[in-house]
Simulated scan of single mutants.
Amino acid sequence: MNRIDVSDLSLREDLALALRAAAFHGLAEGVCNHFSVAVSDHTFLLNPRGLHWSEVQAEDIVLVNEDGTVLEGRHPVEPSALFIHAAVHRIAGHAVVLHTHMPHASAFTLTEAGAIDPMSSQNALRFFDRVAIDRDFNGLALDLSEGERIARAMGSNDVAFLANHGVIVAGSNVAYAYDDLYFLERAAQQELMARSTGMATRPIADRELARRTAEQIQGERLQSRLFFEALRRIIPSRTS
């Protein structure tokens, strides 16, 4: 499993910031959905059950093992979070796993296409050859087998559209994963807005150009780090 080798406090602060940022950007849904970071082969940090993302602070983040035991933290955890995140960390090997029902990206999980068109826009191009589509809705993820099914459908991809459900965005660190989450929603919003006009859309036609552009975006991640640090300044914690 890939995991992040930084201080526990730093990880908790980054994870809490990503949650508050998601609320700030309108990507939260009630007190549902989950963000997690692997800290060992069998443990990960997770947002707690019952807190709105806008109020989550570093001290609220919970450390759990893949069996669902709370190792550190004062809050309980939500069962589906354990089943989905434990499986994606263990099977797909991702260090950071962000799961949301954010509205525009999730809208595509209700369609025959199942996901955005990665050739539709410059924002969408960053997801070229990175997206898995799970076309089988199988109810709530309330057991380990469903989490494992989702993880296997995701495979080696770091973005997954889950049929009639939501999305998963994974990454090597919190800043990169959150940047991708944000731009996935923006790409989905742009495509939906273009389609809603009734005018014919005009996807990028040159696949080699699309590939090169995607590689350029993925190869230059300073912008992702700068974005996350800007969010740290404008969405401070209670102790900042």
Rank of each mutant, 00 (worst) to 15 (best):
E220L: 14
A113W: 00
R20I: 07
R152H: 11
C32P: 06
L11P: 08
I204S: 03
A214M: 03
A113I: 01
L209G: 08
V62P: 01
A153H: 09
R49C: 12
I116Y: 08
G139E: 01
R186E: 14
A115G: 03
E59P: 04
E229Q: 12
A177Q: 07
V39A: 02
L98R: 03
H85C: 03
F183N: 14
E191T: 07
L19N: 12
T43W: 01
V174D: 02
F227L: 10
E55V: 15
G26I: 08
A38F: 04
L144G: 10
R207F: 05
L17W: 01
V56C: 12
D158V: 03
R135M: 01
R221L: 13
L98W: 01
P48R: 12
F44C: 09
A38E: 09
E208W: 03
R202Q: 14
A200Y: 02
R186C: 12
L226R: 11
R135Q: 00
I61M: 08
S172R: 15
T239D: 14
A188T: 07
A124V: 07
D180L: 13
R202S: 13
A95G: 02
M193C: 05
A170W: 08
E220F: 14
A194Y: 04
D158G: 13
V167C: 10
R12Q: 09
L98D: 08
N33I: 00
E72D: 13
L19P: 05
S120M: 14
S237Q: 06
C32T: 15
A214H: 10
H89P: 05
R207C: 05
E55H: 14
A18G: 05
G73F: 06
Q122W: 04
